[in-house]
């Protein structure tokens, strides 16, 4: 590191845990030559380089695209998911947001439904299970339908797109005081419930996804709105409200025995 601007020193307190079964603890690290232009993950790369050179095990953390769209970089930074900057993932959080000499605490997501794998890596496959329970449409294959066959108002399409921006990072669960996944699930239910392609299966989807969510031991929503505040895609509570409506509607109008016995 000969870059003259790489002059920050950061004091890290990082959760280290060799495996799910192992005992974990915080370890203090001093990272020199940090550039304000580095992302938070690049600062970890610098630290891991140093650890490897010293013969120590590098800190395991999830990352992939590093451009804020994959949802992998889960880290609790000073008690806030992804560092708590508005609409920002950890990979898009830059060191210029900190001062040289700052002490930063880094922890993994804490949720019973997200078991720890190693260090800062957690297993978020509980989200996949919620999706498998109904977060899809049963589409007919064949030729692509005509673009104008389904007319969707621009405002509705925009709202569905806002919900579809969810990258499944788990910040909502991590920051929720109740460890609830309602914002994630609300976004997934919303994006499909808003569009005609998703509406035929909407009642069953709402019932099955909520059932799956509850069985996976996520907590209950009590409308704190910490999820909305830390969501890197700025998904709002209105999607949880839509899910609540969809669920209520399904409870009181949907009957398992549908005419014609189509197996629904």
């Amino acid at each position: 590191m000969s870059d003259a601007t790489a002059n920050m020193t950061i004091y890290l307190k990082v959760w280290r845990q060799a495996s799910a079964a192992a005992e974990g603890k915080f370890v203090d690290y001093k990272v020199d030559h940090v550039s304000p232009d580095m992302s938070f993950l690049e600062m970890f790369d610098v630290l891991n380089d140093q650890l490897v050179k010293k013969g120590e095990a590098p800190i395991a953390f999830d990352h992939d695209c590093r451009e804020g769209i994959c949802g992998m970089c889960s880290m609790m930074i000073n008690g806030k998911a992804h560092g708590g900057e508005k609409g920002t993932t950890t990979c898009q959080l830059h060191m210029r947001k900190f001062k040289s000499g700052d002490a930063i605490v880094v922890e993994p997501w804490r949720a019973k439904a997200f078991p720890l794998v190693k260090d800062l890596v957690v297993d978020r496959s509980a989200f996949d299970k919620i999706i498998q329970a109904g977060g899809y449409t049963t589409a007919q294959t064949g030729n692509a339908p005509d673009a104008n066959a389904n007319l969707i108002p621009k405002t509705v399409a925009d709202e569905a797109m806002d919900a579809a921006a969810c990258i499944g990072c788990g910040a909502c669960v991590a920051s929720c005081p109740n460890g609830s996944a309602m914002l994630f699930m609300g976004a997934k239910i919303s994006q499909l419930a808003l569009l005609p392609q998703g509406q035929p299966e909407a009642p069953r989807r709402a019932l099955n996804m909520v059932k799956s969510h509850d069985e996976l031991l996520f907590g209950n929503c009590t409308n704190h709105a910490e999820c909305e505040a830390t969501c890197p895609k700025e998904i709002g509570l209105e999607h949880i409200a839509r899910m609540n409506r969809e669920y209520t509607k399904a409870t009181f109008t949907y009957h398992e025995k549908v005419r014609g016995g189509d197996g629904a």
Binding site: W15, N78, G79, G84, R110, K112, H224, A229, T230
Partner: peptide, 29 residues
């Protein structure tokens, strides 16, 4: 029942957990 479930849903407690200031309030907490 809900409060007990919500407490256990966290599992291991955070060493450091700070409010964003845009969500949880003293009232809700």
């Amino acid at each position: 029942k809900m409060t007990i479930e919500n407490k256990t849903a966290r599992g291991q407690k955070y060493y450091m957990k700070t409010r964003t200031g845009r969500g949880e309030t003293l009232m809700s907490a």
